[in-house]
């Protein structure tokens, strides 16, 4: 699905992405983690094709991502952006329906009747009752669900998430990722998510890719990657790793150095 070969991106003379090579297979849920400024969002922009690599290649289904016409790519790659939707006066239903844009003619028409898809997606994201409400009158968490509904309606094969849980409280964080996960499993979608929270990443991702200063430091399952030595090396802080009493996934406990 995704293959990076010696992927390099130079911005203002510094390499923000330095000679990356990796593969991501179809149907997996991949997490990109790492400290601030590691190049996580840059990597996502390169995968989405809106930015071109300085050298090396980022291939989607064997073809450089930036070589696809935008509309072509939008038919099977969707991106959920960081920060969410600004209040703009549109209703929930209108925003969700924007996800069909890549499939519409210039008159805004589509051959297929999408009303059933729209209703199903709004139900999956618990937005049915809010459908006709303006997004201006929603909370941050609800608005982020609208953004999720919009990318689900795009029916992508590949979904890129750029820190989807930022600014959400813990209830909404878990709710949102639960929705992504069950939808991803049902539809065999490949998901690549930049995540800040390592504990969430360990729960929802099959594979993690750890970035530091534009380089890959480690890749593997959460169990392989989430070890105290690596955490200290990458984040410069000591941590204790325990297994979650219910799910068994590795979870990180912070350890203040002054105690």
């Amino acid at each position: 699905m995704i293959e990076a070969r010696c992927l390099t991106k130079v911005l203002d003379g510094t390499a923000v992405m330095d000679n990356l090579s990796f593969r991501m297979e179809e149907g997996g849920m991949y997490g990109i983690i790492g400290p601030n400024g590691a190049g996580k969002s840059t990597l996502l922009s390169l995968i989405s094709g809106v930015e071109k690599p300085t050298s090396g290649e980022l291939l989607l289904k064997g073809k450089p991502a930036s070589d696809y016409p935008r509309k072509e790519l939008a038919k099977w790659v969707a991106v959920l952006q960081q920060g969410g939707l600004i209040p703009a006066g549109f209703t929930v239903r209108e925003v969700a329906a924007m996800g069909r844009f890549p499939f519409q003619s210039w008159l805004g028409e589509e051959k297929r009747d999408v009303s059933e898809l729209l209703a199903r997606t709004l139900a999956q994201t618990a937005l049915t009752e809010l459908a006709d409400r303006s997004i201006d009158r929603l909370s941050g968490g609800e608005r982020q669900r609208v953004a999720l509904a919009k990318v689900m309606i795009q029916e992508p094969q590949l979904l890129l998430l750029d820190e989807p849980t930022t600014y959400l409280d813990i209830g909404y964080q878990v709710q949102l990722l639960d929705m992504v996960k069950s939808w991803q499993r049902q539809n065999r979608v490949t998901v690549v998510a930049v995540l800040h929270d390592l504990n969430l990443a360990a729960h929802y991702c099959d594979q993690l890719l750890v970035l530091q200063q534009g380089r890959i430091v480690a890749t593997g399952s959460p169990e392989e990657v989430m070890v105290p030595s690596l955490i200290e090396q990458v984040y410069g802080t000591q941590a204790v790793i325990v297994n979650h009493p219910v799910t068994g996934k590795p979870q990180l406990l912070l350890q203040p150095s002054s105690l």
Binding site: K75, I86, A88
Partner: peptide, 24 residues
Amino acid sequence: IRYAQSLNLFVFGERHAAYLGVDA
């Protein structure tokens, strides 16, 4: 009129429009 729907997608930013297939 031809670009009206693209302008709707611009509301959430040029990047957003690009992700939905608009040649921003």
